[in-house]
Simulated scan of single mutants.
Amino acid sequence: MHTPPHETRWPVWATEPVVVVDHDPHWAVQAMEEIRALQPLLRPFGNSGIWHVGSTAVKGLRAKPVLDLVAPIESLERTAVITRMLAPYHWHYVPYELDQRPWRRFFIKVEQNKRIAHLHLVLPEERRWHEQLRFRDILQDNVYVRQAYAELKTMLAEEYRHDRDAYTAAKSDFIRRTLKDY
């Protein structure tokens, strides 16, 4: 079938459905492996640590089986250099025009045509990554919040199965309320 020139052909991993699965204890091991591989690559850009955040970082929490890693760097201006350096390791840069989040630069690691990890590069003073750490810690420490979030994510994954952006946006009120209340 011929695709008209105005339509975009997306890679399979860019449009895969939202699926939430039971927690996998191996996610923590996978995250550490990714962190160990990324640290020497990102150190020249002022990175002094990489954190596993998001639902895969919370023991017992249902999640999309995609690791979320956050790494502060000195400047977001060297994204082109970082993109070239990470490409051989299966990291794909999501251009700002698509991501639309000026506070980060976003990469997706793909293996066998599936997302396995997200890398959020941020500036050290960026409040959002501090909030990601805080939200993760609240979920780890509070079983009631963790259960409510798991139920919400499961419901939203069904409702927004083919719209990752809507799925993410629909969780934001819960996250904001939790950060305010705890």
Rank of each mutant, 00 (worst) to 15 (best):
I82T: 01
I82Y: 00
I82V: 05
I82E: 00
T83P: 13
T83R: 06
T83F: 04
T83K: 04
R84H: 08
R84F: 10
R84E: 15
M85Y: 09
M85E: 11
L86W: 05
A87C: 01
A87S: 08
Y89L: 08
H90E: 13
H92I: 12
Y93S: 06
Y93Q: 06
Y93C: 07
V94G: 14
V94M: 14
P95C: 09
P95V: 10
P95F: 06
Y96F: 15
Y96G: 11
Y96D: 11
L98S: 11
L98Y: 15
Q100S: 13
Q100D: 03
R101D: 02
P102Q: 04
W103E: 14
W103M: 11
R104Q: 14
R104G: 02
R105K: 13
F106R: 07
F107R: 08
F107P: 03
I108H: 10
I108P: 03
K109A: 07
V110N: 04
N113Q: 11
K114Y: 03
K114T: 09
R115Q: 14
R115V: 02
H118W: 00
H120W: 00
L121R: 09
L121W: 00
V122G: 02
V122P: 04
V122Q: 02
L123Q: 13
E125R: 05
R127D: 03
R127L: 05
R127N: 05
W129E: 00
W129L: 11
H130D: 00
H130C: 01
E131L: 15
E131A: 14
Q132P: 06
Q132I: 07
Q132R: 14
L133M: 08
L133F: 08
F135G: 02
F135K: 06
R136C: 11
I138A: 00
L139Y: 01
L139A: 00
L139K: 01
Q140H: 10
Q140S: 11
Q140V: 09
N142W: 15
N142Q: 14
Y144V: 08
Y144P: 00
Y144F: 12
V145Y: 10
V145R: 15
V145S: 12
Q147T: 14
A148T: 03
A150T: 02
A150C: 13
E151M: 08
L152F: 02
L152D: 03
L152V: 03
T154P: 12
T154A: 09
T154K: 04
M155E: 14
A157C: 05
E159L: 12
E159W: 05
